[in-house]
Nucleic acid binder design. Structure first.
Lengths: 146, 146
DNA sequence: TATAATAATTTTGAAATCGAGATAATTTAA
DNA sequence: TTAAATTATCTCGATTTCAAAATTATTATA
């Protein structure tokens, strides 16, 4: 049974992918219906919940290449949902800052977003969700080692 | 605590996304190093493990728009890893079939692929993996309801 | 049997993402 | 202090994906 661990891992990989994609598909629909794509939403939500961010850090947090950040921030700036702020201490750095309009947008959208996710996860009990969180935490972190 | 369920679900959504992306990032690197992109690999693996598939079904199984299937199948056909077979019973339908070269490719790649996934998941014990599989199964399936 | 509705695939144009290189600013080291 | 290395952002070209429309084939209906 040396093979057993590998096939269990493969199975886990498959159900992980399915679960992620299935849930995301629905979440993305709501975001899209509100005129943003998932990446734009992720950036805006980051700024809303975590405050101003240097462009570069955005890339690290939502896993996006530097060229893509410029693109997404452009889009959001064109829509008036964020603005660029030059850093006074380091002129290489530009901060992205959510605008009042952006805040209003997130405030309008977020409750629906959160509730939809809750609905999509209603097949698990509260206890099961906590179990899943613990297991997935373990799974997510150590991948950096390889 | 009416809010508690929602915030637990949000947390689960976040760790699910992180785990998926973290693992996928590494898996994709190996695939890429072998000259395919993740979508091409998914199509080829599907054909290898499940046999010939009508174009349309491929889209359903790996969650891809019809136009994208044409594109990916073109790519794989150009690389000699699959071929199109006209359906004799319904001339609207085209089957994608893996070639011998394609089979050889998967046979070469798959063990490394599987072992890498096993490594990436080594932070969980066998028992934990089985738990995670059960929980994620529950999570993945019912999303179709919404 | 025609006609209309449905279905499968392809085509097309636009959007999103990446990676590599360019530019500009800062820091380190000689 | 100058030169080299590093860092942050942006630009550009290529790839991948989608959505909508076009094409071709089949099935259902009048």
């Amino acid at each position: 049974m040396e093979n057993n661990s590998v096939s269990t891992s493969l199975k886990l990989f498959i159900v992980l992918s399915r679960a992620y994609k299935a849930i995301n598909e629905h979440v993305n629909k709501v975001i899209h219906a509100n005129g943003l794509n998932p990446t734009e939403f992720a950036v805006l939500e980051l700024l809303y919940h975590k405050g101003d961010q240097p462009m570069q850090q955005i890339g690290g947090k939502i896993l996006l290449a530097s060229g893509s950040i410029t693109y997404v921030v452009d889009k959001l700036e064109q829509k008036g949902l964020l603005k660029r702020i030059a850093c006074p201490k380091d002129r290489r750095v530009t901060y992205a800052q959510i605008t009042d309009e952006g805040k209003k947008f997130i405030q309008d959208i977020f409750p629906e977003h959160a509730q939809q996710i809750d609905k999509l996860m209603s097949s698990l009990s509260g206890e099961e969700k906590l179990q899943a969180i613990e297991l997935l935490k373990k799974l997510g972190i150590p991948a950096g080692k390889f």
